[in-house]
Amino acid sequence: MSLLPKALLLVAAFGLAACNNPDRFGAGAGGAGGAGGAGGINGGFVDTTGLGDPNDPRSIAHFNQRIGDRVLFPVDQHTLTDEGRQILTGQAQWLNTNPSYAVIIEGHADEQGTREYNLSLGARRAASVQNYLISQGVAPGRMRTVSYGKERPIEVCSSEACYAKNRRAVTVLSIGAGS
């Protein structure tokens, strides 16, 4: 699986996630881990969408890389940091000028915690992001949340350097579900 180009893998992963969902997930946040289990065996649905040039302010790449697709949280917290609010303000502006996109907000936790509690904690983090985006004028109907708890770390070491990056909420853009 590591031989596959990463972008393709992510696209495939989000395509899989879309099977039972009215939303369509064209492209994902870099390294967000993907929904539903990348590399599954029933890869029937693959939507391909260009990420675009980060210099193009309307591109997904711009959203992911320049604005920032994720916010980080302190240990066992779900309240937004000042830096987090700044990023989300940028996300909201982008979403308000690009109304054809919907988002899935993924909440994640680090591995210090029980599985069930971390699912709940990830959900709280995703909801914090959603509520802030709503407060910035993004229509609630464009957003859904999902928690992965500690199931999808992006960093694999067992120290704070990694944990800090894993305690995150990632705003994943999807196309064509702005209803």
């Binding site: 996630a17 879309a18 099977c19 039972n20 929904a35 590399g39 599954g40 065996i41 069930e116 199931e151």
Partner: peptide, 26 residues
């Protein structure tokens, strides 16, 4: 199969059914 995350299965009291959490829907 391993196409979606599955978590924390539980047997029914008679062992003929299993409850679990699945990400099959995303």
């Amino acid at each position: 199969d391993s196409s979606s995350i599955v978590l924390a299965p539980r047997f029914s009291p008679t062992g003929d059914r299993i409850l679990y959490t699945s990400y099959e829907s995303g």
